[in-house]
């Protein structure tokens, strides 16, 4: 059986995912340069890692769906 492709919805979700991936890439590069550029980078790296973790949980893992029903 052939499935009906929802191209508009797919494009919209794909754009969102790519935007989030862009932010993750930017934060990773910032994290790297903070780490190699500062003597004690801990205080800067913690919020950066937390921000990346939140982006992954919110947009890729859809943590909010745990509290909702259905897809």
């Amino acid at each position: 059986m052939t499935m009906q492709v929802d191209a508009v919805g797919l494009r919209s979700k794909a754009r969102l995912g790519i935007r989030v991936a862009g932010w993750l890439a930017v934060l990773t590069v910032v994290e790297y340069f903070v780490a190699v550029g500062l003597d004690s980078p801990l205080v800067w790296l913690l919020p950066l890692a937390a921000a990346k973790g939140w982006l992954i949980m919110r947009y890729f893992m859809h943590v909010n769906e745990v509290f909702e029903g259905g897809h």
Partner: peptide, 29 residues
């Protein structure tokens, strides 16, 4: 450090492709 940054970028890239895989089947592709 360059190797670690490289594999970090690879793993992040794999996350976006995994996201696109799920999004694709959710929209019938």
């Amino acid at each position: 450090q360059p190797l670690a940054l490289g594999i970090t970028v690879v793993l992040l890239a794999s996350s976006i492709s995994a996201y696109l895989a799920e999004t694709s089947i959710a929209h019938g592709d």
